[in-house]
Simulated scan of single mutants.
Amino acid sequence: MTRRILDHIGDRWTVLIVGALGDGDARFSELRRRVEGVSQKMLPQTLRGLERDGLVRRTGPPRSPE
Rank of each mutant, 00 (worst) to 15 (best):
M1E: 00
M1H: 02
T2Q: 03
R3M: 07
R3E: 12
I5M: 05
L6M: 07
L6H: 06
L6S: 01
D7M: 01
H8N: 08
I9K: 00
I9D: 08
G10H: 00
G10R: 01
D11C: 10
D11T: 05
D11N: 12
R12D: 10
R12H: 08
T14E: 00
T14Y: 05
L16E: 11
I17F: 04
I17L: 08
V18C: 05
G19T: 04
A20R: 06
A20D: 06
L21D: 01
L21N: 03
G22E: 04
D23W: 08
D23F: 08
D23K: 04
G24F: 10
G24T: 02
D25P: 12
A26C: 06
E30A: 09
E30W: 01
L31Y: 04
R32N: 06
R32W: 08
R32H: 09
R32T: 06
R32I: 01
R34F: 01
V35C: 06
V35Y: 07
V35H: 06
E36H: 03
E36R: 14
G37C: 02
G37E: 13
G37I: 08
V38A: 10
Q40H: 01
Q40G: 10
K41M: 14
K41N: 11
M42E: 13
L43S: 02
L43N: 03
L43T: 11
P44V: 12
Q45G: 07
L47V: 14
R48C: 15
G49E: 08
G49H: 14
G49K: 15
G49Q: 15
G49T: 10
L50F: 11
E51C: 15
E51F: 12
R52C: 11
D53V: 13
D53K: 00
G54Y: 13
G54H: 14
L55D: 02
L55Y: 04
L55M: 15
V56A: 09
V56N: 12
R57T: 14
R58Q: 15
T59S: 14
P61Q: 13
P62T: 09
P62S: 06
P62F: 07
R63T: 11
R63H: 09
S64E: 15
P65C: 09
P65W: 00
P65V: 11
E66W: 15
E66S: 14
